[in-house]
Structures are given as C-alpha cells and as structure tokens.
C-alpha cells in the first residue's frame, strides 16, 4: 500500500476551505448590504437623500444597539430573549417616573440601574442556578414586560420636553452628516464592541467559551463571571435602548418594542454568528442589522408591503444558517469523491 505524499495536507486544506467558506458568510452579508444600497440608490428616488438615510438608520437604532451585546452573548453560546421586554420596561419606567415629576437627569441613571439589575437576574439564574439561558430569558421576557405593564399600565406618557426628544429624532443630525445621535452612539459602541470581541483577552475567552465551555474552564477562564458580565451589559444596553425609543417616538408605553427580541436575534444570526456559539464576527452582525434596516426602508419606499418585508427577513434568516451548511456538505462530498477515486485497493 502506498501513501500518497499529499494525504497529510489534504484534510487540512479541506478544513480551511470549509472554514473560509463558512467565515465568508459575514463578507457575503456585507456584499449583499452594499449591493442593496447600490440598487437602492440607482432605482429608488429619495433613497439616497440624507433625510431618508437619517430616517432609515435611526429607525433601527435600538435594535442595532441591543444587537451588539447580543452578538457577544451568542458567540459565548448564550442567548437573551428578554431584551425587548427590558426595552419596554426602560420605556415604561421613563414614562412613569417622568409623570411622577422626576427630573430626566435622575430618570436615566435609575433606568440604567434597573437594566443592570435585570441583567444580573438573568446572569445569576444562568451561572449560579445553572439553567439554560433560553428557558431563563423566556421567563424574564414575560417578567420584565409584565413589570413594564405594572409600572405604566396601558397608558402612554407623551409630554416629554422637546429638548430631550430632539436628541433622538431623525430630524436632528450631527452637523454635516446624515448621522443621528442614536446612530452615532451605535457607531461608537460598535467600535468598542468590535475591539473587545476581536482584540482582547475577553473576546478570545468568549470564542473559547462558546466553542467548548469545558475546555475554556479548564484553561483557567472565569466562565461564570464572564457570562454574568455579558448578561449585565445586555440588560444595560436594552434599558438604554428603551430610553432612546421613548424619546424617538415621544411616547413611553409598556408595549414599546414588542417582539424586538426576534428582530435582534434575527439580525445577529443573519450576520453569520453561529447560534451554537464560538463563531462569527462583529462586522457580520453589524452588516446583518444594517441589511435588515436598509431592506425595510427600501421596500417601504417602493410601496412593497410590510408583509413581504417580514417574509424576506424570515427567508434571509433560514438562508443564513442553511447556506454555509449546504456549502460545507457539497465541499465535503466533492472531497470524499476525490479521495475515493484515486485510491483503488492494490492489495
């Protein structure tokens, strides 16, 4: 029996091929985003106006901001379904406290603290009690939304002073650009998150935890502490997104952002973050969020019904997990066929 000299390297190159194809999904989403932008500019009047761009991006600011810590959570193999409820709770609290005559400067830190507390509860149940994050956050999804109802009932608080509202609406932009302040905040936070995920020890640890938690723990990584921290940050960002949402619409309601959790998770997964943890780039997640936002805007401008947008979101989501899998299978098949043909038994 002869050993072909290249058999040693073949599987390695195959694996790297599979990996690069899988990794390329985030690039693909980036390319798709650019393509949609270009098509939009060419085909749709008013799409490229700075007013419209300001509106389009501001419209997904909350989802985008929450998607950042969600990306870290999913990379670490966790998920938080309670984010939209925390957004609602943040909004409801903002309204209730404002109605009670609190100063806005006091309300914001209180809301943020509540976000931290909510994140702590999620994290505590996951890391200390040892429950799956999916089950825990389905529970806190109901709990936090429920607390929002308790805080504000079915009322809406709308009498926020213009000075604060101005900060969040799409008609106020950073001078000379089409960037609104919430979008600017998102850009800054995204940059920080990207650095944390891809260039710090913490980021390295997240990938290890998501890919193989036990091995990470055996390497001395403080798995529980890190997970707890992630849930806390997610709670914090979600509560703050609640404040932005309230100001943007000038309306505090308990049911603000209902169902956003699905949109956030859809964006993150669309960007190629592996739901099983351990894989993905922040670039992909951001591209995923923006793609959903831009598509929505473009379809609306072209009078394509909201329903179609929903279908497109769903299809993209399924495609985002199915495509890399199909490519990997095809590559593997081809490799196996290639490996089997030139090796007839000589003995």
């Amino acid at each position: 029996m002869t050993t072909a000299p290249d058999t040693k390297t073949a599987p390695a190159s195959r694996a790297s091929l599979v990996r690069s194809l899988a990794l390329r999904w985030d690039t693909a989403v980036g390319v798709l985003l650019v393509a949609v932008l270009v098509v939009g500019l060419g085909s749709t009047d008013g799409f490229g106006s700075s007013e419209n761009l300001a509106f389009a991006f501001n419209d997904i600011a909350e989802v985008a901001i929450i998607a950042l810590p969600m990306t870290l959570l999913v990379v670490a193999g966790q998920v938080d379904l309670s984010v939209a409820s925390m957004l609602g709770l943040g909004s409801a609290l903002t309204g209730a406290l404002w109605e009670a005559g609190w100063a806005f400067e006091t309300i914001v830190p209180v809301v943020l603290l509540v976000g931290v507390a909510g994140g702590l509860l999620n994290g505590w149940l996951v890391t200390r009690v040892g429950l799956p994050s999916l089950a825990v956050t389905i529970g806190t999804l109901a709990l936090y939304r429920g607390l929002a109802s308790v805080a504000l009932g079915s009322d809406a608080v709308t009498d926020f002073p213009q000075t604060y509202a101005d900060w969040a609406v799409d008609t106020t932009t950073v001078p000379g650009t089409f960037l609104t302040y919430p979008v600017l905040l998102f850009i800054v936070l995204a940059a920080v998150t990207a650095v944390v995920l891809h260039a710090t020890g913490l980021g390295r640890s997240l990938f290890a935890i998501g890919a193989q938690e036990e091995a990470a723990y055996f390497a001395g990584i403080r798995v529980k502490r890190i997970k707890l921290l992630l849930f806390v940050v997610t709670g914090l960002f979600s509560a703050f997104a609640g404040v932005i949402f309230t100001l943007r619409y000038g309306s505090a309601r308990a049911d603000n952002g209902l169902g956003f959790e699905m949109l956030v998770i859809a964006s993150v997964l669309l960007g190629g973050i592996d739901f099983d943890g351990g894989k993905g780039t922040l670039f992909g997640a951001v591209a995923g969020v923006l793609l959903i936002g831009v598509l929505k805007n473009l379809l609306t401008l072209n009078d394509i019904a909201n329903e179609v947008q929903v279908i497109v979101t769903g299809l993209l989501l399924v495609a985002s997990v199915l495509t890399p899998r199909v490519i990997a299978t095809v590559v593997e098949r081809r490799h196996r066929r290639a490996a089997n043909t030139p090796a007839p038994q000589s003995t």
Partner: peptide, 29 residues
C-alpha cells in the same frame, strides 16, 4: 430543515415564524 438540514432549531423556526406570518399578513391584507 432541522433534521435533514442540520441547522439549529431555534433559528430555523424563528425564520419560519416570520415567513408564515408574512404569508398570512400578505394574504389577509
């Protein structure tokens, strides 16, 4: 999709949630 596509159930059924809902709304108008 879950069994033969070997993709995570949560993601796929979340996608199906949107697709079916979209079809429903689109039809109902």
């Amino acid at each position: 999709l879950v069994s033969f596509g070997r993709v995570p159930a949560l993601v796929v059924t979340l996608g199906m949630l949107y697709i079916i809902q979209g079809i429903d709304y689109w039809w109902a108008q």
